[in-house]
Design a binder for these strands. Sequence first.
DNA 1: GATGAATGAGTGTTCATTCAT
DNA 2: GATGAATGAACACTCATTCAT
Lengths: 222, 222, 222, 222
Amino acid sequence: MARPDTVTRILDTAEVLFAEKGFAETSLRNITTRAKVNLAAVNYHFGSKKALIQAVFARYLDPFSERLNLALDGLEARYRNGGVPLEVLLEQLATSVLEVPAERNSLKVFMKLLGLAYTQAQGHLRRYIQEHYGETFHRFVRCLRLATPDLPDAERFWRLHFMLGTVIFTLSGLDALRDIADSEYQEHMSVRELIRHLRPVVVAGMQAPLPASLEKVGSAVE
Amino acid sequence: MARPDTVTRILDTAEVLFAEKGFAETSLRNITTRAKVNLAAVNYHFGSKKALIQAVFARYLDPFSERLNLALDGLEARYRNGGVPLEVLLEQLATSVLEVPAERNSLKVFMKLLGLAYTQAQGHLRRYIQEHYGETFHRFVRCLRLATPDLPDAERFWRLHFMLGTVIFTLSGLDALRDIADSEYQEHMSVRELIRHLRPVVVAGMQAPLPASLEKVGSAVE
Amino acid sequence: MARPDTVTRILDTAEVLFAEKGFAETSLRNITTRAKVNLAAVNYHFGSKKALIQAVFARYLDPFSERLNLALDGLEARYRNGGVPLEVLLEQLATSVLEVPAERNSLKVFMKLLGLAYTQAQGHLRRYIQEHYGETFHRFVRCLRLATPDLPDAERFWRLHFMLGTVIFTLSGLDALRDIADSEYQEHMSVRELIRHLRPVVVAGMQAPLPASLEKVGSAVE
Amino acid sequence: MARPDTVTRILDTAEVLFAEKGFAETSLRNITTRAKVNLAAVNYHFGSKKALIQAVFARYLDPFSERLNLALDGLEARYRNGGVPLEVLLEQLATSVLEVPAERNSLKVFMKLLGLAYTQAQGHLRRYIQEHYGETFHRFVRCLRLATPDLPDAERFWRLHFMLGTVIFTLSGLDALRDIADSEYQEHMSVRELIRHLRPVVVAGMQAPLPASLEKVGSAVE
DNA sequence: GATGAATGAGTGTTCATTCAT
DNA sequence: GATGAATGAACACTCATTCAT
């Protein structure tokens, strides 16, 4: 069948437009027009715009979390005594991230979507992601804990999000940055390469010394 | 005058709403209703919603870039021969960021706005920021270059954005993260404190070893 | 067969929803979803929503008009010379009304539907009812004429509709009224009881003195 | 100014269409198109369709309840000791009803609206009417109580609604009934005349004997 | 200098109906 | 005999913007 079915066409179009313009700026008419599909088809197949957004995420996050879980199974088996080393853990995370879009659409879209999930999640999406993928995330956090036993829990929490910020922020805004880099430094950076460059930075960040103990700061800002 | 004038009231309200909900999700009605101002006042005083958005940014970025320029003047004078050390440079950046909201509204809003500028900038805003603050940004980049002479230019470019990702991403999503952290680790993190924790991570990231030389990667993803 | 067939399930569900919310506010999706039946089934089995509405009425009015006809046969045979007395006639009408729902669903639904027929009938329903049950109605009117020989024809016409108004209006809005009555007067009124209370009022209305002859009224309103 | 303002035009058009077709069957497009007004004007001036419906009712019920209150003031002053006689009370009610449309649009519309309020009120309208006119209604009920001291409270409650059914039902469906009556009895009935005919029926209904005491009825229907 | 009124374009959603299978 | 998919039309409502005053 040459022409993919309506549901797929809607999802394919929606994820691209969401990635390009965000949720609010992408109207259902945008999507259905470009997908050459009837306007009512979205509500027929998904029920609402919110449900469509969730479906778009599910198509990436379902295989991703499944793969990551399998990979963690393997790593935990291999490093039965003592935790998985930090580098290996992060390497595996990167690998899992890279694998998903290979069979789906594009890594860039995936990263943009992750960025949106953080910055535009209007509640319903945050809830959806937590409900469906929270367990996998917590499993990863537990592994990370074993890999960084010297880090206080709270510190690890923040550093994990520092790291997520680095990665998601960079990869989700990749196009704009690459345009600048291309013109200024004459070397085109592929996503794979960018990840190679991210790795030492992330590792160094996770292993950075703890901040100097708090001498009283003048006045709290808020 | 007890009641601030219309323009100020609009700006004060708009920045809060933009920070909370983004640009598209914040309607002029939202703003004018909450500001207790006539609906047409925005278009009257600013011309358009886009111009209002720019005005909101200008109110933060104008004093910020001015302060940063002054500070760099001082640092360059002090470290006349040889560049400003990396830690000092970053420290100054943090200080300048922290100073602005002290006289304006709130650091949280400032950070949220910076996050929006990256993730929701619809072209007009990106252009506006580049035009008005590009020069200051480049000056900072030049200082950074002197501070990290061993880093290849392209590598520095990317690491700078890694760092920006870390900071902006974390600070702009601070509320949600702090909620989680509060409940799980019983210690409330102020913005000042968070910046104290960010510093070693950012420094370590900038000084991380270069990635291992590129052995041929299987297949480029895109 | 434990599970009634599709047609019946649709009718059973539709009559309840129509009675609760009216025709326009009840969508075919409402009906088919609640009846656990395919959305297209209504159009398949009935042809259109209008035809479904008519079918719902027919399921009540067919047995009703048949019973009333039979009852009138009996009464006319008994009171061969001279008409059927008014009280007997009205009593028979009430009896016939009460019998139908006994074998169908509920009197409340029947009454609500009659109310809808008057207040929401969009033409097609009015026509349908006139065509199918007009003859029986006229037969009843003829009997009523014999029972109230002193009433001018036009007066009888209007009083009949006054009476219908009283009955249908009260019974079709019964739930709301009963709620109020329950809370204010601590006595719950069953439909049967309500009909007992209606009877003397209806009889008195039909037998009320004629209005005083028309002395010229100031100005006609329309 | 020959052309009435937008708000009035909307209300004038809406009340006619609501009266003709009901609330659900009347779309805002219907209204705005016929009123030659922009579609968004309804939401601009009234906020929502529900609010428009309420405004339509208020334009009739506000002057009506005000007039009725004044009239009851007068009657209570005149019949200081002992209540207002039933005939006088009902006469006054009829007079008040007739007065309102004289200065507004049409009695027919008023009656249709009252019918809709009973049969299509979707909650918000019922609540609105109760809130705004409940007190006046209760005052009238108190007067009615003095006028019919021999009637048990519950019985009076039901008879009041029997009477309301008679009146509203007849007047709100007047057009259809009048068409039939015209063709069959060659005498056209004006609203004023109809009310003259209603009076003895209503009075007789209110004064009808109480129902025979309840001999056990076979089986309760529901 | 400022605003109430108005507007055309657009939003997500729901509708009864159709049709290929 | 029955249904999942699809559709065109319509829905109430919101939007940023304009304009006469």
